[in-house]
Simulated scan of single mutants.
Amino acid sequence: MDGFDKLDLDLLRLIVEEPRAGVREYSRRLNIARNTAQARITKLEKAGVIVTWRPQINLAPLGYAVMAFVHVHIAQSQVNETLERLTAIPELIEANTVSGEGDLLCRFVARDNSHFEDVLQAVMKTEGVLRTRSEIVLSRRIWPRTIPIVEKLRAEN
């Protein structure tokens, strides 16, 4: 946790919990100058802690009710090219290089199971993809979260 103190972590918690509050409100709640809050936010951004200010979107109400994790095995000589080709599939919403089963762990969305089958066929037809293994999400019990780690770091600091 090099270079981050309790104030940084308190600010980070506010940003995660209320991203629309704004710098002025963060500085008011933390009882610090607005410039101090802005400087700390800039530091968190430059360090790669704050990656985006985009909202987290639930695609199910937009008609994409199926989510699946797909382990993708790819030809080792074509990793970057295959990943670039896969990005042409709009239903691909996340891809991670992993150890263990497969080379990539991708998260896809689809309107329904039939549509997911079409998406999976598109993945398998992608040049460089050798095989896949899919797991359909039945329900999301815990959304992506970071506050527990921020709280742990704050307690350790």
Rank of each mutant, 00 (worst) to 15 (best):
F69I: 07
E156R: 12
V51Q: 08
K6V: 08
L92E: 02
V79T: 07
R145Q: 15
D112W: 00
P19R: 04
N80S: 13
E94P: 00
V66K: 12
F69W: 12
R40F: 09
N113V: 10
Q56Y: 10
L62S: 09
I149Y: 14
E84F: 06
N113P: 07
E45H: 10
D103K: 03
R154N: 08
I149A: 13
A37Q: 06
V109F: 02
Q78D: 09
T97M: 05
E45V: 15
Q38C: 08
T87M: 08
T42H: 14
A110F: 01
V49Y: 00
H73M: 13
R29M: 06
I41T: 10
Q56S: 11
D8W: 00
N157I: 14
E45Q: 15
H71Q: 14
T126W: 03
V150E: 07
R131F: 05
N80P: 11
R24N: 14
E17S: 07
N58D: 11
V72Y: 04
L153S: 06
N31L: 12
A68M: 05
I15A: 07
V16C: 06
Y26R: 07
L104A: 00
A88I: 05
L104D: 00
R34D: 09
R28Q: 11
W143H: 15
A65P: 13
R131D: 10
S77P: 07
L14A: 04
M1F: 01
R141P: 13
Q56M: 10
Y64I: 05
V66W: 09
L86E: 01
L104I: 05
R85P: 06
D8H: 05
P144A: 08
V66Q: 10
T82R: 00
V49S: 03
L153M: 11
I32M: 03
Q56K: 12
A33Q: 12
N113M: 12
E81Q: 09
Y64M: 10
A155Y: 06
A122V: 10
E101Q: 10
N96M: 11
R140E: 15
Y26N: 05
D10S: 03
A39G: 11
L62T: 04
P55C: 02
